[in-house]
Amino acid sequence: MTTYDGKVQPGGDAQTRDVGNARIHKRSVGSMSNNAYLIESDGQALLIDAAADWPKLQEMVEASGAQVVAIATTHRHHDHVGALAEAVAHLGAPTYAGADDADAIDVPTATLLHDGDTLTVGDLVVTATHLRGHTPGSVALSFRDADGTDHLFSGDSLFPGGVGATNHYDYQSFPQLIADVEERLFGRFDDSTWVYPGHGDDTTIGTERPALPEWHARGW
């Protein structure tokens, strides 16, 4: 098993991390180096962002040996859904996405997620957090492991060093995104919370919190 440091590259191996009563698999896929995650607990799994390269994602799923009971999409952007149709066809699992993004995703969404909604995966309760600004219906997904640590899958709303892009589409808004990230992520999660973003390396809430004033000041 590859040592977990959260640094994955397209074409490279998946990394696996054991956390309390869960196992997290992370793989980078596609031309935009998207992170896809598989959260495994008690023989069941949640696939987050079937972004691209279904064979690589299928390899990650099959290596886990778990039954995928849900496929969640953090937001509507094309680079996060490139393998969604294939994942659904092969796994037969129900789809989840933010209520305000679902209509813009080509694959039908079975369950619309609102702020605070939950789904159960094995022993885990996974909670959706609605974050506006990068897209209208972006959601982060989180769970608390048996050791009391929160794990937050932030999509493209929070990265090491700042929030997601807000200058490409008319529906994007930096003031809205920074407000939601500050209130709904930094306001709800403590500094030990591990953050798994939609691209790039992992971080923690504690690592990023001191930079919030700088992010506000620079406007991105």
Rank of each mutant, 00 (worst) to 15 (best):
H80C: 13
V68N: 01
G65M: 01
I24N: 07
P94G: 12
V81P: 08
E182K: 15
S154M: 07
A45V: 00
D190G: 03
E62P: 04
V19P: 08
V8S: 04
T74G: 10
I48G: 00
D42A: 14
D180P: 14
G65P: 02
S173V: 10
S28I: 10
P108F: 09
H130Q: 08
H78Y: 14
D190R: 00
V88E: 06
H134E: 06
A146H: 00
D100K: 15
T135H: 05
I48Q: 00
D201S: 09
D5A: 10
F153E: 04
M60E: 04
Y171M: 08
Q9A: 08
Y169G: 01
L177Q: 09
T73E: 06
E208H: 06
G6S: 08
D13S: 15
S173Q: 06
K56V: 14
I205H: 02
A63V: 02
L185N: 04
V68L: 04
A93S: 14
D100P: 11
R218F: 04
G187S: 01
D79H: 13
D13Q: 15
D100H: 15
D156M: 03
R188S: 06
G116W: 13
K56H: 09
T166N: 03
V19E: 13
G30S: 02
D49L: 00
L124F: 07
D190P: 01
H216F: 03
R188K: 05
A14P: 15
S41H: 05
P10C: 03
D49W: 00
T16F: 14
L38I: 07
A85P: 06
V19M: 12
V88K: 14
V61R: 03
G219E: 02
Q15N: 15
I39R: 01
A45G: 00
P94F: 11
A89F: 10
D147S: 01
G6T: 08
